[in-house]
């Protein structure tokens, strides 16, 4: 049966992919693990009534979000726990003032699934600053328990 963890908090799941078909690859595998969540396109965030935020990844070739970083400026003042997955970590990095550098990684390494074209300069595969957590790999593929931990423990 599907693994699903009971979370009593509302998770705002931010989708950043351009083509809706990519929802099935980058958003649905995350929401399949949650019970109480709301999926919102990053360009349409209005209601900030949630307890946690997960920023999903997107396709290798889909970098539109990098041209619209102003749409994420509200995150600077967000005090709720925020998890950025892959491109979501790029966004957190930019919000915190880091630079991105080109760095392509596709496939499995150390039991983690990677699919990215950039990394944060000076940082490795993860980030943890105050309420922000970033993972350059995709935990929804081989490390589902990390999403459980973020939802239930942080």
């Amino acid at each position: 049966m599907k693994q699903k963890w009971r979370n009593f908090m509302t998770v705002l799941v931010l989708k950043i992919n351009k083509n809706r078909l990519h929802d099935e690859e980058f958003v649905r595998p995350v929401t399949d693990l949650l019970e109480d969540f709301k999926v919102v396109d990053y360009r349409e965030v209005k209601n900030l009534d949630f307890d946690k935020v997960i920023i999903c990844g997107t396709a290798l070739k889909d970098n539109e979000y990098l041209d619209n970083l102003d749409k994420f400026s509200w995150l600077k003042n967000c005090k709720k726990p925020v998890l950025g997955i892959c491109a979501g970590m790029h966004i957190i990095g930019k919000i915190l003032g880091y630079d991105l550098i080109e760095n392509k990684k596709i496939g499995v390494e150390d039991n983690k699934y990677y699919l990215h074209s950039f990394k944060i300069e000076g940082l490795d595969e993860s980030l943890e600053v105050e309420n922000f957590k970033g993972m350059l790999f995709h935990p929804e593929v081989l490390n589902k328990e990390l999403i459980k931990d973020f939802v239930n423990l942080t």
Partner: peptide, 9 residues
């Protein structure tokens, strides 16, 4: 080109 995996996971 883009790659899509709509049945992923």
């Amino acid at each position: 080109i883009y790659c899509f995996n709509p049945l992923w996971q």
